[in-house]
């Protein structure tokens, strides 16, 4: 996927299972949104093929669109439209929409139903965006940075909702640059960086590491002096056995470690 001569997504290959949550993880500018928009039929890949529910998102757009739900990263409503009015409108475009009142209540939009879109908070706009993606009872939802700008409480509520979707048989594909979001929520994580897929797997697989990784867990917090002594002991031991130690980390390995190891960069700061 190119814009001019800039390659945004290159040689990306991934498969999503039904009724699972898949996270596309990467720093800003990694090509997450481009990947999603290619699945949603907004963009046609210059090479390669995309199939969603067996359909070509561009060629079979009319057949595909009623079956998917899309949450954009921002905007998507008239500035003067009231929150519920917008949700009801999107509902009317579908054959068997969810009850908009119940859906709004579930997403905590009950109190701002009459508020014009431009006066909703960022978090409320996000939740309305999610409601619009769900109201048509889609088979797959594509959610772009669903919790960006949400407070911790709203994030957890959103996570619960996404898990509930999976239980009800909906396939969820989300992008995020929050590692904890991918780790806690996703069945499959695909880490992309600069338009390339650099790792795929379950959060467990990705954090398990390889046989070259030795993980030592002790039963108590180590004071600084003890930690230094342990490092010195490891150094002596590795020198005696002619084994090079690439890194020693104190604390647990997370997806953040994985990203750092694979790209040499910190995800939050790109």
């Amino acid at each position: 996927m190119r814009y001019g001569d800039k390659v945004a997504v290159d040689g990306l290959s991934l498969v999503v299972e039904r009724a699972t949550i898949t996270a596309v993880l990467g720093p800003n500018g990694a090509g997450k949104t481009t990947t999603l928009e290619t699945c949603e039929g907004y963009r046609r890949p210059q090479t390669g093929a995309v199939r969603v529910l067996g359909l070509d998102p561009v060629r079979d757009r009319r057949e595909l669109l009623p079956r998917i739900g899309v949450m954009l990263q921002g905007g998507g409503a008239w500035s003067g439209v009231r929150a519920m009015e917008m949700l009801d409108h999107v509902a009317r475009l579908h054959a068997h929409p969810l009850d908009t009142g119940e859906l709004a209540e579930r997403l905590g939009l009950g109190e701002c139903g009459k508020t014009p879109y431009r006066r909703l908070s960022g978090g409320q706009q996000q939740r309305l965006g999610l409601a619009m993606a769900l109201v048509g009872r889609p088979e797959i939802v594509f959610v772009d940075e669903p919790t960006a700008g949400m407070d911790p409480q709203a994030r957890r509520t959103t996570w619960e909702l996404l898990r509930e979707l999976r239980e009800d048989g909906v396939t969820v594909v989300l992008t995020t640059h929050y590692l904890d979001e991918a780790e806690q929520l996703a069945d499959q994580v695909h880490i992309i960086d600069r338009g390339r897929l650099i790792a795929s797997g379950t959060p467990e697989e990705l954090t398990r590491g390889s046989s070259a990784t030795v993980r030592l867990v002790v039963d108590q917090e180590l004071p600084g002096a003890t930690e230094a002594a342990l490092r010195a002991a490891i150094d002596r031991w590795s020198a005696d056995h002619h084994i090079g130690v690439r890194s020693i980390s104190f604390g647990s390995r997370t997806l953040e470690d994985v990203f750092l190891e694979l790209t040499g960069r910190d995800i939050e700061h790109g």
Partner: peptide, 12 residues
């Protein structure tokens, strides 16, 4: 109320 998200897509 527990919402049922079971897919039932379709265009009006």
């Amino acid at each position: 109320a527990d919402l049922d998200f079971t897919p039932r897509p379709g265009a009006a």
